[in-house]
Design a protein around this nucleic acid. Structure first.
Length: 299
DNA sequence: ATCCTATCCTGTAGGC
DNA sequence: TGCCTACAGGATAGGA
């Protein structure tokens, strides 16, 4: 489940490796991604130079010379993989193969095909249906408690579902939503409109902290995500609640619970994240400061 | 407008 | 060992 830290990791690696490169050739699989790119024939990618690599939420934006941009989303199982030479191992589910003029190449692989790769005139990016409703990117404009409390005003949906709504804070997915709420001490089932300002302030602070720490560790490899060099991310060892149902909470030792919200798993600690917010708040005043913990190898 | 559900997709894990 | 089923969740369309 690539979320903002995973996409940002890939974006930074792409910036290091393909910025300024000129596309020599693009090959596509006939196995269609969910949103194929019918415009590709009309506006070919080859011959264009990569001018910028941007990201909004979980969307990767590749600006090409000549006023064309590529919108790419990794979906559930998408990977961008970079190869410095043309000796490439056999690989299934590769949908896009980009060859650069210097002999390097970049592949988009996506077994489940939930991801996207399509080209759009750069001038029309802001109007694109996928992008136009996204909230401000949390790395560009970190959310504040005041802004979140205003966004959530009178909403009845759960705090967890609120965090997954890309119109609010884009880039948060199922893994980081559980982690952020746990660290903020907020029960995931609380109606978003009932959270107090101090709670949104903690959520805002933990959003910044969790995303930042995850980027430093090149993301979370829960199952399929890999970096541009096909390496796993290291943040999985830092997860406090995600996929830890029944295991002791690392703060209070109560068993971590799993519930289903909107057909997705949510993990939380009923002691650290009480359903009814009382005065028994966590004692520490600082928002962050979790030490790295030891955990066994990835699943 | 808000909220919820079904849909897409395939590798993997677990049961038997 | 091997078959079968359930499960994982990104965005989005459509209905209540």
């Amino acid at each position: 489940m690539p979320e903002l830290p995973e996409v940002e990791t890939v974006r930074r690696m792409l910036e290091e490796n393909v910025l300024g490169r000129t596309i020599r050739r693009v090959g596509r699989s006939r196995h269609r991604l969910r949103a194929p790119a019918p415009a590709a024939r009309a506006m070919p990618l080859h011959g264009r130079m990569i001018e910028a690599l941007r990201r909004h939420g979980k969307f990767l934006l590749i600006d090409l010379s000549g006023g064309l941009s590529v919108i790419s989303h990794l979906g559930m199982s998408g990977r961008w993989l970079f190869y410095a030479s043309d000796t490439i191992p056999p690989l299934a589910h590769v949908h896009v193969r980009i060859a650069f003029e210097n002999g390097t190449c970049l592949w988009y692989q996506d077994p489940r095909r939930f991801g996207t790769f399509r080209s759009v005139p750069t001038a029309e990016l802001a109007r694109d249906p996928s992008l136009r409703n996204l909230g401000p990117d949390p790395l560009d404009r970190p959310p504040t408690g005041a802004w979140l409390v205003e966004q959530a005003h009178a909403l009845r949906l759960s705090a967890k579902s609120f965090l997954l709504d890309q119109r609010r804070v884009p880039g948060i997915g199922n893994i980081y939503a559980s982690e952020i709420l746990h660290r903020a001490g907020v029960h995931p089932g609380r109606p978003a409109g009932t959270l107090r300002l101090v709670e949104w302030e903690r959520i805002a602070a933990e959003t910044r902290a969790v995303l930042g720490e995850a980027i430093e560790m090149m993301g979370t490899t829960f199952s399929t995500y890999r970096t541009l060099w096909n390496e796993p991310g290291a943040y999985g060892a830092q997860l406090l609640v995600y996929d830890r149902a029944g295991e002791p909470c690392l703060r209070c030792a109560s068993p971590v619970r799993r519930i289903v919200q909107g057909q997705r798993s949510t993990f939380y600690c009923s002691t650290c994240q009480p359903r009814r917010p009382g005065r028994a708040r966590r004692s520490e005043g600082r928002s962050s400061g979790h030490s790295a913990r030891e955990r066994g190898p990835f699943r």
